[in-house]
């Protein structure tokens, strides 16, 4: 399992992560980010991509 952490004080809901890992991150009807904090290992590449493209550098994988 992979643990995902988003610093919601940094997150500006740009949604770049949603594009990279749509099964983990999503924007709700109010355009606010929601995410699944625990993911299957098969999602690792997508989550790493989301970490990389986050404009606010707000996403971390907790090892």
């Amino acid at each position: 399992m992979i643990k995902v952490e988003v610093d919601m004080t940094k997150c500006q809901h740009y949604g770049q992560c949603v594009f990279e890992a749509p099964d983990i991150f999503r924007l709700n009807a109010d355009d606010k980010l929601e995410y699944t904090a625990e993911a299957d290992d098969s999602e690792r590449a997508n989550i790493e991509a989301a970490v990389d493209v986050c404009p606010m550098q707000a996403i971390r994988i907790v090892e």
């Binding site: 949603v18 749509p22 924007l27 709700n28 009807a29 355009d31």
Partner: peptide
């Protein structure tokens, strides 16, 4: 402008 979830749906 805004409506980011709609924009995302174009993915």
């Amino acid at each position: 402008i805004g409506m980011r979830s709609v924009v995302q749906s174009y993915r």
